[in-house]
Amino acid sequence: MTQKTNLNEEDIDLEKSLQFSLSPVQPNPEFVCRLRGRLIEPPSIMIEPRKTAAAFVVVTLGLFVGVFFVWLIRAIFKNN
């Protein structure tokens, strides 16, 4: 029983130390203000949407031209 009472007293002392040591801190007001601005204001950098259709046309055209040239060169050598 005495041990339990001592334990409780020690707990109370430790709680007092915790109350003293774990005091709330104030964030830098400039940081708080700046973060609010970043959250709420729209971003100034705009990401350009991907031009998928244009990329598809360019790749297809490139492949077509490549195949055409191969066919052309083969046809020339065949005739020779």
């Binding site: 774990l22 709330p24 801190v25 964030p27 973060l35 609010r36 959250l39």
Partner: peptide, 22 residues
């Protein structure tokens, strides 16, 4: 509503900062 989020931010920013700081 961004203004509403701003209100929530003001209410909780210090608490969250304290938690992360410790």
């Amino acid at each position: 509503d961004t203004e509403a989020f701003s209100v929530l931010y003001e209410r909780y920013v210090k608490r969250i900062y304290n938690y992360i700081y410790y």
